[in-house]
Design a protein around this nucleic acid. Structure first.
Length: 272
DNA sequence: ATGCCTTATTTCATAAGA
């Protein structure tokens, strides 16, 4: 069984690349992040034509996650209980549930696929450590933790994967000195990941296809990909039972090359 | 060995990404 996660940075802009990649890599389950479209406008028919069932939790302009599965798709959860809403500056009316209360953002979708409980996650960016967005990021992780803790009791086969927007260690950024004072590397963010691992989830570190670093993200700007100025922020956290089945894992950096790529590369995990 | 930002929408400007 092949499982993969990929932040596609707009599923509509990436549709030719996505369909091409599905045909080549042939994952059984693919978790997508930043689909950046609504459920209604998600290109479900194109994906279904390749033999996948689709669960989408989208919103209009930003965020949005999805699961594609060729091995069944059951008990779909759009979001999770207790997920926080961003509580920063006032939002425009379209983002509000009611005056002053923002809608929860579409950052999580879960489903049971081929006997594995799978979550496609897109953690908030956090922007800067002194911002309300950063507090929101930590609150989001704090709310996610008990949900996964509860599911692990009933679903020993569990994978939480996606764009975690945290580099677990200094080795997971191209130059730690550049990130001093920035999000993605702060102790509270790394503690949030450690709290997930304390539940019994294991970081399935993929092999890089080239070079020493299994980075999964490279900025579009300044030739960052060509210089391998990347970060490992797309993670696969697997329960012990799934970890015991891992036969291999790699970052498909080929998907970051060429015409109109996402700024993230897929992480692929093969299970016995 | 790779291409010097890209995406969506409230579009010819702005917000967001990390």
């Amino acid at each position: 069984m092949r499982l993969a996660t990929w932040n596609v940075n707009s599923v509509k802009a990436r549709l030719p690349r996505l369909l091409e990649w599905l045909g080549e890599a042939k994952p059984d389950v693919l978790a997508l992040q930043e689909v950046k479209t609504t459920n209604a406008l998600f290109p479900a028919a194109e994906v279904e034509a390749l033999g996948y069932e689709v669960a989408v939790h989208g919103e209009g302009r930003w965020n949005g996650v999805a699961l594609l599965s060729g091995v069944g798709l059951e008990d779909v959860s759009l979001g999770f209980p207790g997920q926080p809403s961003y509580e920063g500056e006032p939002a425009e009316a379209t983002l509000l549930d009611e005056p002053g209360l923002r809608k929860p953002e579409a950052r999580a979708v879960g489903a049971t696929c081929g006997g594995i409980r799978v979550w496609s996650l897109y953690a908030p960016n956090g922007r800067t450590p002194d911002s309300a967005h950063y507090q929101y990021k930590l609150a989001w992780y704090a709310a996610l933790q008990p949900v996964l803790e509860a599911e692990l009791r009933t679903d020993p086969q569990l994978v939480a994967c996606g764009d975690f927007n945290v580099a677990p260690t200094d080795a997971d950024v191209w130059d730690p000195a550049v990130f001093v004072g920035s999000t993605h590397v702060t102790p509270p963010e790394r503690q949030a990941l450690a709290d997930l691992r304390a539940l019994g989830l294991h970081d399935i570190v993929p092999k890089p296809m080239k070079g020493p670093h299994p980075f999964t993200y490279w900025d579009y700007r300044a030739g960052a990909f060509a210089k391998d100025m990347g970060m490992r922020i797309d993670l696969v956290y697997a329960s012990q039972a799934v970890t015991d089945r891992v036969a291999g894992a790699y970052v498909d950096r080929e998907a970051r090359k060429g015409h109109a790529p996402s700024d993230h590369a897929p992480v692929v995990v093969d299970l016995d």
